[in-house]
């Protein structure tokens, strides 16, 4: 179990290091997704399967889609189409694929070897326990989160709109 943790940590550290050193935004995004997947595996090993799921759905899914959307939006035009075709050549996928395959192999090993069902292997904090705490003592926090998300939505819409004077 500890070995699996170290392997996932190594993948997370390597891919995060590649995020901040890569020159191309799309390549960095690919490695950032791998980094989030690795952290999700770490969450799973630490006994937080619900949070691991949210990490993949929201961080690696929703937030990264926003980034890709903006990166693609900033490069409109005919010249950019060839540029974008050059960004995702097959050899770009090798690095992220190797790292993701490592994580997949690790996950398959964890499920296959039966370590998870052994006593004391992982102390799981089930989603039920999390939600009992979330909607109990932290109810005020949930309300505050909703008060944060609504201005976030309105603010993103207001700030991101296309101004008439700057149509180009």
């Amino acid at each position: 179990m500890t070995g699996a943790f170290y392997l996932a940590s190594l993948v997370a550290a390597v891919s995060t290091g590649l995020v901040i050193t890569s020159l191309n935004a799309v390549h960095a995004l690919l490695y950032l997704i791998v980094s989030f997947l690795a952290v999700a595996v770490v969450f799973f090993i630490l006994g937080a399967p619900f949070i691991a799921m949210l990490e993949i759905i929201i961080y690696a899914g929703a937030i990264m889609v926003l980034f890709v959307f903006v990166v693609m939006m900033l490069n409109l035009g005919r010249r950019a189409i060839e540029q974008e075709a050059g960004w995702l050549t097959p050899k770009i996928w090798i690095g992220p694929s190797i790292l993701s395959a490592t994580l997949l192999g690790e996950l398959l090993y964890l499920f296959g070897s039966g370590i998870l069902s052994q006593a004391g292997g992982i102390t799981v904090q089930a989603p039920k326990q999390v939600s009992v705490v979330l909607l109990g003592p932290y109810l005020v926090g949930v309300e505050l989160a909703s008060m944060l998300l609504l201005p976030g939505l309105v603010g993103a819409y207001h700030v991101g709109r296309q101004l008439k004077s700057e149509d180009a």
Partner: peptide
């Protein structure tokens, strides 16, 4: 479970 709540 408080840690997971904070993560949320």
């Amino acid at each position: 479970a408080d840690g997971q709540v904070m993560f949320l």
